[in-house]
């Protein structure tokens, strides 16, 4: 347990010290949030919710997608292709520890990102919600982020450093746009509204939008998120245990 906690702490520190964390977890979501809220005005409404609230959720989810995908995918790809993972396999460290500490570290990072987003929303744009609503939105988003961390780990297993970086960026933008995080699906053509129903990004944000809009949270939101998480973890587990051969070059 001590070893697990130590590795968890190191995983958190590694990420926080990295410029990538600042850009994707803080700078992008906060920047876009302030820009778009001021562009459309605080009094705008979307799906019966104040725009400043609606878009706060959009950008909070966008932030955890970036945290999960960009940092994780590249890191896993580097570790896997440049000897580190092989070296670790020769130590008594369990494979489960490697995965669980990464997931748990990303929970901390997502929480930090969400905390900053919510503070900006509350203090700069004067978003007001009950303590219960803040808490419910925060917690679901932080734990929903596990889906994107799992997706990041999977992408890291598919290619080398360059490939992982490119693939992670593409997936990052696609799931964000298709999930209605940049442009609300309500104002998009029906095709995109149907597509969004299958996106973990839309489903995660929808939980918080439902809480804010004081409507019942659709059970299908949880079902889709859970299906993604289980599916991604299974595929990652399969991909990461595929026998890989070390071909001699020297």
């Amino acid at each position: 347990m001590k070893a697990w906690l130590l590795e968890w702490r190191i995983e958190v520190l590694r990420n926080v010290r990295n410029r990538r964390f600042f850009i994707f977890t803080i700078l992008f979501p906060v920047g876009f949030y302030l820009l778009y809220v001021n562009l459309y005005g605080q009094n705008a409404q979307m799906a019966g919710i104040d725009w400043s609230k609606y878009f706060l959720i959009s950008m909070s989810v966008f932030g955890v997608v970036g945290t999960g995908l960009n940092g994780t995918a590249v890191r896993v790809a580097i570790e896997r292709t440049q000897g580190w993972t092989s070296w670790m396999l020769t130590t008594p460290r369990s494979a489960a520890q490697a995965v669980t500490t990464k997931l748990a570290a990303n929970v901390v990072l997502s929480a930090m990102g969400i905390a900053v987003m919510f503070l900006v929303g509350a203090l700069v744009e004067h978003v007001q919600m009950s303590a219960g609503a803040w808490f419910a939105c925060g917690v679901t988003t932080v734990f929903g982020a596990l889906v994107f961390t799992a997706l990041g780990i999977l992408i890291g297993h598919l290619g080398g450093r360059e490939a992982a970086q490119i693939l992670a960026s593409i997936v990052y933008f696609l799931v964000s746009i298709a999930g209605g995080l940049w442009i609300p699906v309500q104002i998009l053509p029906p095709f995109f509204q149907h597509l969004a129903q299958w996106m973990p990004t839309y489903r995660l944000a929808d939980i918080a939008w439902a809480v804010i809009g004081q409507r019942a949270v659709p059970w299908s939101d949880f079902a889709v998120m859970a299906a993604y998480l289980v599916g991604l973890v299974l595929v990652s587990a399969w991909v990461s245990t595929r026998p890989r051969e070390v071909r001699s070059v020297a």
Binding site: A3, E7, R14, G83, S86, W87, T90, R93
Partner: peptide, 25 residues
């Protein structure tokens, strides 16, 4: 073990890596 080509993890201090490895054994 020392392998031939290993890239050490980024943004980790020497003393942290040492503590990390020590925790395995």
């Amino acid at each position: 073990v020392m392998l031939q080509h290993v890239t050490l993890p980024q943004s980790v201090k020497v003393k942290e890596l040492v503590a990390w490895f020590r925790s395995f054994y």
